[in-house]
Design a binder for these strands. Structure first.
Lengths: 359, 359
DNA sequence: AGCCACGACTGAAGCGCTTCAGTACGATGG
DNA sequence: CCATCGTACTGAAGCGCTTCAGTCGTGGCT
């Protein structure tokens, strides 16, 4: 079926036609100061006339040893990925930080929570890769290592010799839990993010925590427990539901379970705003008023959090800064910089209408 | 600053070390049937030992004349792009259609509603490009033409010699308007998508419609007007607000304006679900009940539409089919297929709780 | 007049890989 | 025992570009 298009013009075609060397034509495009304006114009004109659109990007990449793109790896497919508002914001910040028009974004979607296939990574034409919140056993990470590409990890996991942008997850969770404890809540439930990429959700057993592959979830959990522990609330007394993904629906399901327990929690700590929004919905459906009968806290502070009804009390992380930092680190690693210490994005608590003192 | 990493091993390195020709090493990776299993294993082992991660993707691309990626152009930056749920879904379908692990997705975000920079396109290492709902004067489209890359256009605009996936926008809008007219509504307002990429919003003048760059908006408008016209409602009597982007906030703003008019519309036709959700919020804020006092219709049928309160009456388009078709067309164009006729995705009306008969 | 610096352009050596027409050789069939 | 064939591997010609060390006039300076 392949249509043989007529042979495309190359640098040589133009060079011969104009009667100059190939180097000169190359310079016409890349170093205009290396030739006289007149000649340059003649070259460009001839190129246009011959339908030559400029140096071939692939050949240029080979010659310069610069692929000119940044690979971005995420753990799921695009639709679940972008239903996560936090990701969109941070990715936008990342891409605008890097985008000077010279560099583009190669998206490597994950396959089933495990991140991209190793083969996708092996074949990717890229200079640097940014990994977003992958499980620590993702095959793609091994592939990146094999290719010895500079790596920037966002959120998790820890990877030796890579740069890293993280958030003070534990600290944020601590603030959230301390806030509800301070409001007098003693029966607190947790709706958490995934512990492993196996798609399993539900009430969490201690063994499952042992075998977790997502550090962020563990950190936030630790933060919650620490703050609650300070108020004498033991970890065992804090029911913990694992949501297999960051979707409202899953938060709703988790909260439903929590609200069915005895004693019923009067406060729910959620590891993301999406989960929290689902929890609020679950409360409404059961006729529980928020914050009257149940307090709900989120994490991230996405735009939806402040629009929600009631507006969500949540832990704010600066998503734009996160994306920008990741972009800058990637750029710096391209220049051969050492990974350096992890960059930590700070957090603070945004107290809004979804939490109130226990009655 | 550039760190000189020790020279990386290449095919030759391995070939010399093993004592075979370079071609054989290449075959070991690409055509395992061309050599004996034993030799292949020896080669792979040596490669591993030398830290060779397989053929360099860029060099391979140059030699095979296959960049191995699909470029996806969109009109805005990533954050606004992905806050559009319709895009996420369709892009996910597109990427999973194309992703065999051999091909990746090059994302070319737009700059300010105008689509990607021409230069981004000129430098993109790609075999085929998919353009998503760009204005008809986008510079990127000209660049694609200059490079003579196969092009698949989704939604808009019309581009000669390109393949196209579109939606029956006019038909869908017609259904929506006919539905509200059938419910007895005579005062109908429209909250529309952009007419041009200039970021301008507000009440729309006839001249602005003349100079529109977005065909989809025009088609939907035509569909609305046709159905309303059949009920004797003249175009002039139908207030039309242009939202400069597809965001809830903008729908809210537009609806506010509509609700301030005299006579106040009893039905609002919105060109997207996001806009419609914003319109519902505006109604709530003004104490107007939906659908009691105001009916609202959306377009797209994104997941949020059915979750909304009240669930949104909207025009369903099959976003997954749209992405899949776009992917398949792109693949086919890679094989040199002719563009063919546009593929049109059908629509139907989902009647839910946001519309009711006029009282 | 002699020297040097400078601007404008060229030649050639890569960049790392794929591919195709061979070559060599042992096995197979008549 | 020779022609034939298939298997296993090689050599060399690209793919289209960048880059760097030159070359060659020119004009300024002393």
């Amino acid at each position: 079926m392949t249509q043989d298009r007529e042979r495309r013009p190359t640098l040589d075609t133009i060079a011969q036609r104009v009667g100059v060397s190939r180097a000169t034509v190359s310079n016409a495009y890349n170093r205009p100061d290396q030739l006289s304006g007149a000649l340059r114009e003649r070259i460009i004109a001839t190129a246009k006339q011959l339908g030559y659109a400029g140096p071939d990007p692939v050949a240029r990449s080979l010659a310069t040893k610069q692929a000119g793109s940044v690979a971005f790896m995420l753990c799921d497919g695009l639709s679940s990925a972008f239903s996560d508002p936090a990701l969109s914001i941070m990715l936008d910040a990342l891409s605008s930080t890097m985008d000077t028009g010279e560099r583009s974004l190669l998206l490597l979607p994950g396959v089933s929570g495990d991140g991209p296939r190793a083969q996708s990574v092996m074949r990717a034409q890229t200079d640097v890769v940014v990994a977003y919140s992958l499980p620590d056993n993702a095959p793609a990470l091994e592939a990146v290592r094999a290719r010895d590409l500079p790596l920037v990890v966002v959120d998790q996991p820890f990877v030796p010799k890579s740069a890293r942008v993280r958030v003070d997850d534990r600290g944020g969770a601590y603030l959230a839990a301390k806030h509800v404890a301070g409001l007098g809540h003693r029966h607190v439930g947790i709706v958490g993010l995934g512990l492993s990429a196996d798609g399993v959700g539900g009430p969490v057993s201690p063994q499952r925590i042992e075998q977790a592959h997502f550090e962020v979830t563990l950190d936030r959990l630790a933060g919650y427990r620490e703050a609650l522990g300070e108020q004498g609330i033991l970890a065992d007394a804090v029911p913990f539901w694992e949501a297999p993904g960051n979707a409202r629906e899953m938060g709703r399901e988790g909260a439903r379970w929590l609200f069915g327990l005895e004693p019923r929690p009067t406060a729910v700590l959620c590891m993301s705003d999406e989960l929290a929004l689902g929890a609020i919905r679950a409360a409404n459906e059961l006729g529980l008023s928020v914050p009257g009968e149940v307090s709900v806290v989120g994490f991230d502070d996405t735009p939806a959090a402040s629009w929600a009804d009631p507006p969500l009390t949540t832990v704010r992380q600066d998503l734009v800064a996160k994306g920008r930092q990741a972009g800058e680190l990637a750029l710096r690693m391209l220049d051969g910089a050492r990974p350096g210490r992890p960059v930590t994005i700070g957090v603070d608590l945004q107290v809004r209408g979804s939490t109130a003192a226990v009655v």
